[in-house]
Amino acid sequence: MISIPMALLITATLGSVFAGLTCSIAGVFVVRLNMASIGFCMSHAAFAGAAFGVLIEIDPLLTAMLFSSIAAVLLSPVASRAKLSTDVVIGIIFSLMIALAFIFLNLSPGEAASGSALRILWGSIFAVSEFDVLYLAILSVAIISFVILFYKEILSLLFNRKLAEAAGINTYVFMLVIVFMTGLAVSFSLKLVGGLLVYALIINPTSTAYQYFWDFRKIMIFSPLIGVASCIAGFTFSLETDFPIGASIVIVSAALLTVSIVISPKRRTAKGRA
């Protein structure tokens, strides 16, 4: 087990808790709205943005947010203009972002810059500052408030977007807020979990909760709990093994999901019914 200073331990633990919370709540939206590939694209765009930030020596967080927002905003119009399916456009933007990220990393001069860039790639507890934790805490409060205050609108939207719109809900605004919050969750968690892995933290906890609950309210409560548990367990695993924290979190959350799929009471009921 590696030994790290107490202050860093507290920062990294809090960062893990808030990253797990925000990403897994965003995951409920991403999974239900079939935005899985959009989230995938956004997380890699954030990675490219962060690499760009390292290259031009400004806070990678800002450029990560900028790139992921641009990717999310561009998707639909590009697909419409090019008369291609959104999935095809996502594939194009995703590979473009990865290519850009590698070029930015390659161009980053000096050992320190390369170190920063690599930390963005894999995630590292040493990359997380008190400010990053503060941003994640503020985002956690914002995203939880959003869910509580607009729970009935969110439920309606996630059940069926067209029906929600027909009931008088401005679904366009809600979709914008959801995409924006997902982009923020991805960007803020990037340093801790890593650009290539943050997406798993969005998808895995929600998919795990889906294996157990029929009630959306419970999914909304247990997804973030599973997300936080995955992050804390992953962090501990990382300390024990000296593996990168991002990879450890993903391994833990994927293991939880795999076990849940195997023992899922929900799937057994559905199968029994069929």
């Binding site: 009935k152 439920l155 309606s156 059940f159 029906l163 929600a164 009931a167 008088g168 809900i169 959306f216």
Partner: peptide, 10 residues
């Protein structure tokens, strides 16, 4: 919850 979602706008 699905039936209640009809009253969301109201």
């Amino acid at each position: 919850n699905v039936v209640m979602s009809g009253r969301t706008g109201k």
